[in-house]
Design a protein around this nucleic acid. Structure first.
Lengths: 210, 210
DNA sequence: ACAGCCATGTAAGTCGTTACATGATTGC
DNA sequence: GCAATCATGTAACGACTTACATGGCTGT
């Protein structure tokens, strides 16, 4: 029986990529994932801690216990040479495109099951969410371009200077892409609201004439 | 212990929404999901058959065995009134926005771990995939606008005529949104390729001068 | 003393994936 | 006869989610 997931498992590589910038604890990694909006991959700490143990067991990262205050301890992880090699393998690998799976669009497909007011409410929520996302990504792009995030500075320090521009450029390109995405979601919701207005007007006209 | 998924489970509603158009077998439903590119939610048959049984047990759909040829049988499912009510509840409910989780963008963030040639290869694959997606969604929008899909015709037949425009319009709006999405992914990949060209030229210039 | 953050886990469940299986029907 | 398609499942596993838990440190 050969069950092999062909690596949807990006969490592992996201963790290694972060640790390639600087050693960190699980807690700090978790903050990167769910507190800071600046990360492309979400994960809760309950997924991160076990994964770190597995990565350590696989030799891709190395953890060591540090003291924190008098009785407290914390475990700081650093990427290993094997981990770096695995990151390189992963970056070179072509991943299968993700499966289409969008709850908001699915629901919008069937707005006829609800009222015009409901369709409006749904589009408004979509709009509000993605407008906020857009602002967050925009802010992050600016930070990246100014090289003004602590993690980026640490990352740059680990590479020869002639590569710095490329490192920043790739990241800025990603987050600019997310800005564009968010913007087009906003636009989609806005034109959805227009659509609902037109449909409701048409329905009203029909009532009046019928 | 109260573990309740607050309904990421769109598969259930996707199935009911399809069955609201016309009764179907699991096989036919599965084709809608993974053969036809025209569906927003992917699911393999191994997920669909058990889910249908669960929906039936919950009274949201009703299945009945039909004969197929001499010895063969098939099970056709139809939505129930309870199922229709559940669809209405679902459409009226605000779902939490999906978590950011994009493998391609995550990888692109760390292209510095690979070569320029690799970055180019990744962007090209991204471009090719989304260009194809774009064409598929475009074709589907046209079919919808012409009311030229069998499922849509069946669906319209189940509703009073004054609602037909809205039913078509919502669906066309969704698939036009997907076209826009695909287009901006194509554009993102294209400008990614430009970026790699610039970075490589800059690196070459540095080699020459250094 | 207490709040808020730092820090690390476990448990139980759902969702989605690939692979493994089987058999009938239809058309050539 | 044989291939393609119709039709329906199960098994094992990996991925992700929510909730349950615990305890130390820091500043007021």
């Amino acid at each position: 029986m050969l069950y092999v997931y062909i690596c949807l498992m990006s969490l592992r590589h996201a963790l290694m990529a972060l640790l390639a910038a600087t050693p960190m604890t699980g807690y700090t990694l978790a903050k990167q994932f769910d507190q800071s909006a600046a990360f492309v991959w979400h994960a809760p700490h309950s997924q991160i801690y076990p994964e770190l143990r597995r990565l350590e067991e696989a030799g891709l990262i190395a953890g060591h216990e540090e003291s924190r205050g008098i009785r407290g301890t914390k475990r700081t992880y650093a990427i290993t040479d094997e981990g770096r090699a695995e990151l390189q393998r992963w970056v070179a690998e072509l991943s299968p495109p993700p499966r289409e799976r969008d709850g908001a669009y699915l629901k919008a497909t069937y707005f006829e099951f609800g009222s015009f007011a409901n369709a409006r409410r749904q589009f408004q929520a979509h709009l509000a969410h993605h407008r906020q996302q857009q602002r967050q990504w925009e802010a992050h792009v600016e930070q990246l371009e100014n090289r003004d995030t602590s993690l980026l500075r640490l990352r740059l320090a680990a590479w020869p200077e002639h590569l710095h521009d490329a490192i920043v450029a790739y990241k800025a390109h990603v987050y600019r892409g997310l800005v564009t995405r968010a913007r087009s979601e906003v636009e989609w919701a806005r034109s959805g609201l227009d659509l609902v207005d037109r449909l409701e007007a048409a329905a009203g006209a029909q009532d009046a004439s019928g």
